[in-house]
């Protein structure tokens, strides 16, 4: 493996791992649509951060993304309180914010390392060339360092407040009656989704990041009945998809981010067929057995 390919795989695995972990709670909180929305609106956050600071550094992007993610949530909530249906509200808010981002890129950003094509599809191939040097570790691609930082934050927040995430996802009413700040945790979670999305943005882009967020978690959901195992499996599936996607892309010489998203689909399809608990074949066999027994 070349040095270049190694960095691509490391970066992709970090994307798979962070997205896989966040994805579990996206699914359990029934917020898949919200992830779709945020993956698009962070573009506006990045563009605004760029316009204000005139540079595309990691921290600026993260702050811009958090701002955009929270703004999305507030606007959706606000429209919903005005009797617009939840899914319609999400659709209105994210397309409008994304459109503003696209217009701003075209009019105000000009020649920067930021264009619509890049934002939608990402460009993981270029990542290893844009490096920074870190103490102890040495030369590291900037995007990879940012992803590692975000993964650390995500892991820390998920592990430290594990039981709170569990209870607010399962039974928010009980959580609130126990004095757990359900709304605050909701917004903290949205911040996590935003920073994960923006850190993965460079690697896989706004469309593919949704695949990385939702599909590994949906696959893991089919394999286990334990939340902790679901988290481990989802992260693992994310990494497997990312690495497999890279090799598929290298093999047929095509888009890396597209192949990675395709690989998540493959993982899901395999899970859907072969999972021992909720898989299609297992279910068919069980049905067959009971029919035989009773018949």
């Amino acid at each position: 493996m070349t040095y270049h390919a190694m960095w691509i795989i490391v970066t992709a695995s970090l994307v798979g791992l962070s997205c896989g972990l966040i994805g579990v709670f996206l699914i359990l909180r029934k917020m898949a649509m919200m992830a779709d929305a945020i993956s698009h609106t962070v573009l506006l956050g990045i563009v605004i951060a760029f316009i204000i600071t005139r540079e595309l550094s990691g921290t600026h992007m993260l702050i811009g993304a958090i701002f955009a993610g929270l703004l999305t949530a507030f606007l959706v909530q606000w429209l919903h309180s005005l009797d617009v249906q939840q899914d319609a509200a999400i659709g209105i808010v994210f397309t409008t914010m994304f459109a503003i981002g696209v217009i701003l890129i075209a009019t105000s950003v000009g020649n920067a390392h930021l264009d619509v094509q890049h934002a939608l599809m990402g460009e993981i191939t270029f990542i290893p060339w844009n490096k920074m040097s870190l103490p102890l570790i040495g030369e590291v691609p900037k995007a990879t360092a940012l992803l590692a930082l975000v993964l650390f934050v995500v892991l820390f927040v998920l592990v430290a407040f594990y039981k709170e995430w569990k209870i607010t996802s399962f039974d928010p009413a009980l959580a609130a009656s126990l004095g757990i700040p359900v709304l605050l945790m909701h917004y903290v979670f949205l911040c996590l989704v935003s920073i994960t999305t923006v850190a993965s943005f460079d690697a896989v882009g706004a469309i593919m990041v949704v695949a990385m967020l939702i599909t590994p978690a949906a696959s893991a959901y089919l394999w286990t009945d334990r939340l902790s195992i679901m988290l481990v499996l989802s992260g693992l599936f994310g990494v497997i998809s990312a690495v497999a996607g890279y090799y598929i892309a290298a093999w047929v010489d095509t888009s890396i981010s597209g192949s990675m998203a395709f690989a998540t689909g493959l993982v899901f399809f395999i899970s859907f067929l072969f999972s021992p608990k909720h898989g299609w074949i297992a279910r068919y066999l069980r049905l067959h057995k009971t029919v035989k027994k009773t018949g």
Binding site: K163, K166, I167, F170, L178, D225, R226, L227, I229
Partner: peptide
């Protein structure tokens, strides 16, 4: 994805 004992434990959170 959780079991009965875990749900009951939530009452103690």
């Amino acid at each position: 994805p959780t079991n009965a004992l875990d749900v009951v434990t939530m009452g103690l959170y």
